[in-house]
Amino acid sequence: MNGTVPFWSIVVLLLCLSIPSDVAGADDPAVPRTRPLAGVLAELQPKIVKIYGVGGFRGMEAYQSGLLISEQGHVLSAWSYVLDTDYPTVVLHDGRKFDAELLGAHPRLEIAVLKIDATGLPHFDLARAVDARSGTRVLALSNLFGVATGNEPVSVQHGVVSAKTLLAARRGTFDTPYDGPVYVLDAMTNNPGAAGGALVTRDGRLVGILGKELRNSLNHTWLNYAVPIEQVRPTVEQILAGKYVAETEKKKDRKPARSLTLADLGIVMVPEVLPRTPPYVDLVRPDSPAGRAGLKPDDLVILVRDRLIQSCRMLREEFQYIERDATVHMSVMRNGQLMEFTLEVPKP
């Protein structure tokens, strides 16, 4: 039946419909409508497991966390000494205990995949994991400090992603072979037992897997971080498909067979009288790559390939990792000015 809709109601309708559109984030992975937290957690808790294994002495805890990634009980966790046993134990959120079998591990990514004998388990779908960026509100679910036992669900922490960055631009900063992207977190996840836990958005979408206890040797602080799922998914899928082949130990920093030397470039540094002699150039051979590029005596080498050089010894070490025929970008300080040079040893 027909009826007259008054104009004012159309105005109100249009106003109402227009409001949500500026809230819906176009570039943010979080679903425009954030669900109540209790509901999100109720959905997530059954997907996180508590893992028990080897340890329990000298500060090395015998527990950590894991995520269910398939209905039949595949568990993704961190590769650590805890799993260094024939049958690590996996305990679900409702207390059910299973012996787990190690299907495969990737030492460089520091992840492992376990299998428990179960069916119908709620789980994460790795393919539907999302990216986050700094400021994204996140939840971290893990059994940190082993507080949860038996049929207690794991602990939840909240915070934001602090930054997405590459671990260790500088060699040896972090004691881990992993050198890919990580989410640095604004939440205290750097604690025993948290490794292998889940990092999700406020709305419950998987983002990453919580990392191990790592210390930043540059500023002596502990790092709260998680590895993006995107980094581990291909390997996990290979392990699940049974096609995983442990890669040959690819050292991220392997020294080239023939490395560049300062002599090749025509640079002589000041004698190393101190343990940390500042890297001043002493002599430059006129007819050499350095001479032709314009380096001069008393130049202070600051950066080589974008790495900060603190001493003569560090400079020599850095050169050991450069191929002989590579192009080298170097920055020096001369009279308070920063100058950049590109040096290359000519091919014979």
């Binding site: 039946m1 027909n2 009826g3 007259t4 809709v5 008054p6 104009f7 109601s9 159309i10 109100v12 309708l13 109402c16 419909l17 409001i19 949500p20 809230v23 984030g25 943010d28 979080a30 425009p32 409508r33 954030t34 509100r137 406020r202």
Partner: peptide, 30 residues
């Protein structure tokens, strides 16, 4: 404004719109 559709559908539409606004207003975390 005259509309041909039934009065009760317009009511539903308005209700939905207002619910949408209310829900959007609740999305404080985002």
């Amino acid at each position: 404004v005259t509309a041909r559709f039934p009065r009760k559908w317009s009511a539903v539409l308005i209700l939905l719109a207002i619910a949408a606004t209310a829900a959007a207003g609740d999305d404080l975390p985002l």
